[in-house]
């Protein structure tokens, strides 16, 4: 046995395994903010990534444009038919919006869970090891980004802000498997709204799981799922996806709806960080949703 412990290499290996476990334990817990060496490293690499990303996106954009040209004619035809519907819809929306503000004035209710101000951002990097689905954007603390804000594309919700440094921030996508990921959502197409939580992601079928739905409600396939704003952080009405299938959970007490995300989780270029205008609740204090 003494020989075993005298082996210098083995001791170095053991010590480094202990350091490894300590580091993992340190970083897995829910941290309020990153330590300053991490922030410094992330900002420095973020600066380089910002420069490196420009020519890459330019070349990629060129090839994409060429690809787009191929089916321009077909698309144009289809879009022309949709244009008439659009005009119709637009007048309807304007009418409804006007009515809504009038009714709000009557009620004296100024703020809504729906109101938000967006911060435009560009993706500068993506985590190459695709276990933790994260992208890095070029907007940080000085631009007003805060932890836990919702991140959307033009189509819908894609994720939330995980960490913020001075000039960059990391977005955790909905498709990442984080046990702490939880978003309060609702289905409003029925007479009474159905509420639930987005918890987890089916990695094999690539569908989001909406859990904690009461067992006695019926959900139609294809129903639209949007954020409910009740979690205290996200605004209301950001589209999340469509219901693909509904199953009862393993104990039969609640149902689980599998949701196909509306926004694609790849080819992300321009994102919007959503800042809710109504007061936000600190989720760590209240123990609410949207964590």
């Amino acid at each position: 046995m003494p020989q075993f412990f005298l082996n210098k290499r083995l001791i170095v290996l053991l010590v480094s395994i202990i350091i490894l476990v300590a580091l993992i334990g340190f970083s897995v817990r829910d941290r309020e903010k990153l330590s300053w060496p991490e922030q410094f490293l992330k900002d420095t690499t973020g600066f380089i990534q910002n420069i490196f990303d420009k020519p890459v996106q330019l070349t990629a954009g060129f090839f994409e444009n060429v690809k787009d040209l191929e089916n321009t004619y077909q698309e144009n035809k289809r879009l022309k038919t949709r244009l008439d519907e659009y005009v119709d819809l637009k007048t309807k929306v304007q009418d409804l919006e006007k009515e809504n503000t009038e009714l709000r004035d009557v009620l004296g209710k100024k703020e809504s869970l729906r109101d938000f101000s967006p911060i435009q951002a560009t993706v500068i990097a993506r985590n190459p090891d695709m276990w933790h689905e994260k992208v890095i954007i070029n907007r940080g603390k000085i631009h007003g980004v805060k932890k836990n804000m919702a991140v959307i594309t033009a189509k819908g919700l894609v994720g939330k802000i995980k960490t913020v440094t001075q000039f960059t921030s990391t977005v955790q996508l909905l498709s990442s498997m984080d046990p702490k990921n939880r978003i309060s959502v609702g289905i409003y197409s029925e007479k009474t709204p159905i509420y639930g939580f987005i918890e987890g992601f089916d990695q094999k079928e690539r569908l989001l799981m909406m859990k904690k739905i009461p067992y006695d409600v019926k959900i139609k396939k294809g129903s639209e799922v949007v954020t409910s704003g009740l979690g205290g952080v996200f605004p209301k009405g950001l589209p999340v996806g469509k219901v693909e299938k509904v199953e009862s959970d393993q104990y039969g007490l609640t149902q689980v709806a599998y949701i196909k995300p509306e926004a694609v989780m790849y080819d992300l270029n321009h994102l919007m960080v959503v800042k809710r205008t109504i007061t936000t609740v600190d989720p760590t204090e209240s123990g609410g949703g949207d964590l």
């Binding site: 290996l13 480094s16 395994i17 350091i19 490894l20 476990v21 580091l23 993992i24 340190f26 970083s27 897995v28 991490e38 490293l41 992330k42 690499t45 990097a125 985590n127 190459p128 090891d129 276990w131 933790h132 994260k134 890095i136 995980k162 960490t163 990391t170």
Partner: peptide, 19 residues
Amino acid sequence: LFDVVYTEILGIYAFLFAF
């Protein structure tokens, strides 16, 4: 650097690359 910038779980890649 990989751990800090991309995964945010410190130590895994640093240890495995070197090991």
